[in-house]
Structure formats: structure tokens, C-alpha cells
Amino acid sequence: MIVGTRKPLAEIQGMVAGARRLLVAGCDTCVAECVAGGRREVAELSAALMMASRMAGRQVEIREASVDRQCIHEFLLEVVEAAQGAEAVLSLACGAGVQALAARLPHLPVFPALNTQFIGETAERGLWLENCRGCGDCLLGLTGGICPISRCAKSLLNGPCGGAVGGLCEINKAKKFDPEVPCAWLQIYDRLSALGQLERLTVLAPPKDWSRGEAGGPRRVLRPDQRP
């Protein structure tokens, strides 16, 4: 899922400062799971903005709407309808959702309330970890299901680097992490050992074709069988 975090309220207030009628739009899938942009967070932010605007001596009418996926146009109808009469829209979706909504509302400013962070997993309650970079050339089949691109601080293809201590990545020495960051390559070793596939580590990985990832420019997937 896509993990996001709310922007500071002052930044959000700055973006929507001129709007007297505002729609706050949530997305009830990824960003709801990471407690940043679902309908609960829409309600929190709306209440906070209402109070902040009154304290600044301004009256702002705030509507709330939330849909299952802002990144899919068919799901956006409810938000588009709720946006009628609004002077601005504040979206609590990821960057993809904000842009899809903006495309459906060409005459309205659509602002992001979140900073989109990464593709990740819910590791524990309240802890989300980045574990996919969307590199376009998945290696998980070779590495026991643990991604060295996203989970190794150096994105090494032939690890470990030698800096790990006690199973932990050396990045913990440079920056405070809680919980500490494990060495992804030691995790890969343990996993392959449990699978009886340690011989995989004897094969050197060749240089990776990064052009399939974000280095290759804007990416798209075109499926002729799915086209209209």
C-alpha cells in the first residue's frame, strides 16, 4: 500500500487560505490503513481547520467526503459531486489520488494534505515500513522474498556490505531509528537458509537495469486487452 503522513497544519492552512468553501476529501484504502487520510482523518482535519479559521476571524464552510480510491476515476464521482460549490479541495489521498481528482476538477484548485512517503507494509500497529521501490524489475524471487533495493540502506544487489553489527544495519550509527533497522542482507541469508536455498548467494547479481524504474522517465503500463 501507499504510506503517507499529514502535512503540518500551518502548511495546509497556507494552501487553502483564500477558500471560503472547502471540500476535504479522504481516501479509504491505503492512506486510511496508515491512519493518515481516511474518513476519520478527514473529520479530524476538518474540525481542526474549522477551529483554526474561526480563530483567524474567517468563516469557512467545510464539507467532507471520502471514497474508496481516489486514484480510480470511477470512484471519484461522489467527490466530484461534493465539490460543487467549493472554492478549493483538500485531498488526503496519495499523490496519485490528488492528481486523479485534479484531473476530474479542471476548474478547481486541488491541494495535497499529505506527503506521500513510500510503498510499504503495516509491520506492527503504528509502524509502517518501506519495502518496495517499484523498481520495475522485481528480484524477490532471488532474495527469499526480502527486497534489497528498499530494505538495504545501500540498495546492494550483492550484500551484505560488511558494516552490519549484531544483525543491524550500520545506518543506525548515523541516525536514530526506533525500532532499529536490521541488515536486509542478513535477513535474506536467514530466509534462504530456512528455505534450504543458500546456494543462491553464490551467484553474483549482474548490474541492474535501472531504466525500468524511475530513472527511465515517467512510467506507464499499457494493456491492449484492457483498452476500450
Partner: peptide
């Protein structure tokens, strides 16, 4: 009780 309940009550 959720955080949004608390904030809404204060706002309203």
C-alpha cells in the same frame, strides 16, 4: 472515543 470525536465536539 476517537480523536475526531474530541475535535468535532470542540469545534461545534
Amino acid at each position: 472515543i476517537e480523536a475526531f470525536h474530541l475535535l468535532r465536539i470542540l469545534a461545534v
